[in-house]
Amino acid sequence: METIVEKSLEEQFEAKIANEIRIEPKDWMPEQYRKTLIRQISQHAHSEIVGMLPEGNWITRAPSLKRKAILLSKVQDEAGHGLYLYSAAETLGASRDQMIADLHSGKAKYSSIFNYPTLSWADIGAIGWLVDGAAIMNQVPLCRTSYGPYARAMVRVCKEESFHQRQGFEIMMTLCNGAPAQKKMAQEAFNRWWWPTLMMFGPKDDESPNTEQSMRWKIKRFTNDELRQRFVDMMVPQAEFLGLTVPDPDLKWNEAKNGYDFGEVNWEEFWNVVKGNGPCNKDRIQTRVKAHEEGAWVREAALAHAQKRSQREAANQAK
């Protein structure tokens, strides 16, 4: 009896997916769908939060008051985006505390790109231009992802992020049109961030275990390699416009496929960073753990006060 009910629920679910009807929090869903979503959404949220650190690193050193305000509002937006995403995951029954605990214990992953250091001001330009550019390619299709709360959070995220890439490009443009020392700074940052950015799209399709099911459930809309190709095709002309050299000797226009051929990503480096051996993995997590632990007494105090207050109000009403 139960298995028949289960089966018809699954059929209904599959029919919704096929008909592009969004799945909402209380709808029946396969356990694996729920798990995949919690994993992906929380990973996405963690990336926003950890992603605040490399850029936050330069807020206090931004070279003008205007840049300082822009950078602070951008990093603040990332906190907001992390929050929207944690909220979306919470509709699936995950608690934020648990998700954060998983991040801190290393059980949950976040985007490896944030395990690279920001060494000069040009890195802030490069992150906005390249990393946010890549993030947007990943994120725009997610506005149509099959799970309602996730899709709605992504609509908000994408709307707010539209200025992020532009401010990065503007920083790069200012540097590239500036003094030789600035141009050099820009090229060096470009060299450092190009390859890690290509890694952001994830492993090659034939080595990406989750892609197939996620595509079927319309959680994911394009494969890793498709997005990576699109990104390269979009960015190369922009780099040329800036007068920057793409650090890839194998980069070549391919008329037949109407796109660029490009060199092989260093997958050994990619897997190493994923495993925790990137230049900043330890620092990033330590920083997050420290903030969370040092904030514990604040969170407790606010709860304790709220309880005292509501008890007092209840006592007053009883009088």
Partner: peptide
């Protein structure tokens, strides 16, 4: 602004950044 990314809880991280942005304006 030095607090950005290091606040005791996400919601207050946003609050402090807002105040900082007001002051910078």
């Amino acid at each position: 602004s030095e607090w950005c990314g290091h606040g005791p809880i996400l919601e207050q991280d946003l609050a402090m950044a807002n105040i900082s942005l007001d002051l910078l304006g």
